[in-house]
Each structure stands twice: as structure tokens, then as C-alpha cells.
Design a protein around this nucleic acid. Structure first.
Lengths: 225, 225
DNA sequence: CCCAAACTATGATATTTGTCATGTTTTCTG
DNA sequence: CAGAAAACATGACAAATATCATAGTTTGGG
């Protein structure tokens, strides 16, 4: 059984503030789970029994709309805690979690988290700050959706994906997202995404090789109108 | 000096869980402020020294975009705490707060709030749950912006404003918002908002008298496509 | 109570984005 | 490695929404 004390993912979230004793308990009660690309971790409107800490891979949090399309609210990578909001509010999930590529998660029972929130003030405040950060990001996303063009949102998303999930040895974005995934994030049709990627390519802002995308000029992407 | 123990607004937010001793302290250090319609409580990118508890009136939280328009992320009414997120994260504001009509606020210094978060576990957890709720609302708003038409968003906003801020004796919405305010909330042009309100009027979903709006059928508004 | 300013209203037109159709390329699997 | 499925790509057209122009109506301050 892998020891949580040595987990890198933990350093990236509130669990970095857990005491040694709490970490020992987590090590004992956690379970490591593996999902394949496309697998559903949970659906909308489910009760969760714990949170999932991402150790490897990318997971998308999305909601299905009436017309059958889904919108991706955010991507979760190494260190992100999936289901944290639902556990705290005690409500059912309002988003589904789906593996974008093969992923490895640690499931931590909710009692463990809730107990630490109630007993460990430092942990509790860190969770509070994390939620405040998430809230800010969600509000900023809302504003982007309202005020920016599809072109601008796609440009920003490419930069974000590059910064957050990095690039491989050739400089191509490591997060191997489909055009459809990008469309779901920026809230547009897949065809529109493809069309704009073609424009970006013509304008020299990006280059592609198959489905892979390489950013050629972050600077110019930032200035897209 | 008004005593916080008896304040109705307090019952509507996390401050309902403060101890008598804490409330006494808040009563002493709080200041009551009055703003006129259009007054700015704070701008984007300011450091706050405390939170503002809405006692009366409505305040909009919005962000200015590059093209000079602003987008309203949410409306704050009686009991809402303005600036809570910024105080918790320790960051500057990312939204501005502007009075939509004449309002009365209580300013509470941040130390008072932060001390209670650190020492009062019940209060801290309640704030956590509030943030979780805010996060859910922001994410839902993001999805609505991406998936719904302007017509649907306007219909939902009218229902929301009716439920949240009530109606006057004639059944007209009490929150006396401008067409421009609605446009800013749903993320569209003022003209589009006016045009759709005219459609709703023709379809019998609402009626108007000057700038005032009365919902004639919540049921049908909910079904707008 | 009158007038200016602010707000509401509507038409004409432009722009953005979505939808449908169709073909090509890439990737996966036996 | 072949064939099928999935993903990518692009054109033509439709729909939604923004922008600009212009006019009517309401509201608040002197």
C-alpha cells in the first residue's frame, strides 16, 4: 500500500496540511483506482462517498444539456480533488467526471475528509482557500463565456492547456484532447473549433501533426481578437 | 448602535452561527453604510479590509470587459456577504460592487471574520458550505451561458429576480432593474433584451408598465426555448 | 410642472456562430 | 496489414445575436 506521506499529488492540494497521524489514517483507508480513457468516474446527480485525488491523467467535469451536448466546466489534473464541493455541501453531484485519458485516482472516504475539516483548523482553512480559488476561476470563466469570442476562448484554452498539462518532447500539448473536447470546454460546435484551429494554423499561431497541437506563439495567441 | 443579535440579515448567512460573545464584538466594530443607486462600493482589483453584509437593497457584482461593457456575475440582496471570497483568499477583488438601488450595508473588519473562521469551527464550516454553494451557482451559470439561448437566459433571470427579490403590491418585480442590468446579467446587448421582452409581452408571458415588469406566467416562462 | 437626461423601443443590416452534408485522414483492432 | 470506426476538415447555408440608427416615453431635478 503506497504511503500518502510520499505522494507528490498530495503536495498540490489541501492534503499537504494534514498531520502525520491523519496521513497514516488516509493511507490505510484510501483505495487506488484506475480508469481507462472515456470511463465514467461518476455521473451527475449521484451521492458521493468520498473524494478522488488525481494522481495521473486528466479528467473532465461536465454537464449534459437538453440537446444532448455536454459542456466541460473544468479539467482536473495531478493533485486536483474531484468531488470536494459535493462532499462539503452534502449535495448530489451536479457534474459528471469522465476520464479524458487513462487515469489513476485515490479514493478517500468522506468521513476522513470531513473529520479533518472539523478537527484540523489549518486543513479546514486551506480547503476554504481552495474553494475560494475555484469560485474565482468559475466566475472568471462565466465572464469569458459572456464577453469573449469563440476565437479568444479557444486561444486562451490552448494556452491554459499548455501551461497546466505541459508539452511533450516535440513541443506538442501533452493533454491529448480531441477537437470535440476543446469545443466542449469553450462552449461551441466541434466544427467551429476545427475551423478556428485551421485559421490559427494559417496564421502561424499553432501547428499540428495529426490530432496533436503545438503552440508556436503564446504571445500572439494571447493577442487574438 | 444597532445590535447584531437582532439583525434579520444576519440570519441569512454564516453569521447566524456566531456565538453571543462574537456577536457582541461585531456589534462594536461594525459600521453601517448607506449608498445611493449607482454608487460604487468597491472596484475591481482593490484590497478589502472587511466584508459588507447587505441589510437593504440590491448590489451587483460585475466586471468590465475590454470593449467597455460590463458583465454582472451576480446580484447580492439582503443577507448576502459581499467581499467574502476576497477576504478568504487574501487576494484583490476581481469584481466591482455597485449599488443597483439605494442600499444599506454593514461593514465588518476582516480580522473579526478571519478570527471567527479560525476559532469557531461551526462558523468556519458554514462559510465553507456557503462557498460551496456559490461555486455550484457559478458553475451552473457558466453552463447556462454556454448551452442556453438569450431567450432562455432572460426567462430564467426574470424568474430568479422574482423569486429572490419579490414583487410589489401590483405584482411587479420589486428589484427595479434597468433593461441594461438584465442585459449585463444574461450577457447580451441591451437592445436584444428589450426585443425579447417585447416578444414575451406579445406572447403574454409578462406585462410591463413603464420600466416595471410583471410575470404573468412563471410556468410558461420556464418552458421558453 | 417643465425640460433635459435617461431609458425604452423598433427597424435595417452586419457579423458571428451553428447545422448539415460530404469527403479525407488518422487510429484502432482483429 | 486491411478494414472499420473514429476523428479531422471544409463548404454551403441557416439561425441567432450584435450593431447602428432613429424615435418615442418616462423620470427626476430645478
Amino acid at each position: 500500500m503506497a504511503r500518502c506521506e510520499q505522494c507528490i499529488a498530495r503536495q498540490l492540494n489541501s492534503m499537504k496540511t494534514l498531520t502525520k497521524e491523519e496521513l497514516r489514517k488516509v493511507t490505510v483507508c484510501k483505495r487506488t483506482l484506475y480508469y481507462k480513457k472515456g470511463d465514467v468516474i461518476f455521473n451527475e446527480n449521484e451521492m458521493l462517498n468520498g473524494v478522488y485525488c488525481v494522481r495521473e491523467g486528466i479528467c473532465k467535469m461536465s454537464k449534459l444539456s437538453a440537446n444532448g451536448k455536454d459542456h466541460t466546466v473544468k479539467l482536473m489534473g495531478k493533485g486536483n480533488l474531484i468531488g470536494q464541493r459535493s462532499i462539503i455541501s452534502g449535495e448530489r453531484t451536479h457534474l459528471s467526471a469522465v476520464a479524458v485519458n487513462d487515469i489513476e485516482l485515490c479514493f478517500i472516504p468522506k468521513d476522513q475528509i470531513l473529520n479533518s475539516i472539523k478537527s484540523n483548523q489549518e486543513f479546514s482553512f486551506d480547503v476554504l482557500q481552495n474553494l475560494a480559488q475555484d469560485l474565482r476561476e468559475a466566475e472568471d470563466g462565466l465572464i469569458n463565456m459572456a464577453q469573449k469570442t469563440v476565437r479568444q476562448r479557444l486561444a486562451e484554452t490552448l494556452i491554459y492547456v499548455g501551461k497546466t498539462f505541459g508539452v511533450n518532447h516535440d513541443g506538442f500539448l501533452s493533454a491529448n484532447l480531441l477537437r470535440e473536447d476543446y469545443a466542449s470546454i469553450i462552449g461551441t460546435a466541434t466544427e467551429s473549433t476545427i475551423r478556428i484551429l485551421s485559421q490559427f494554423k494559417k496564421e502561424g499561431l499553432i501547428s499540428t501533426k495529426g490530432k496533436m497541437i503545438r503552440i508556436e506563439s503564446v504571445h500572439e495567441l494571447e493577442r487574438v481578437q
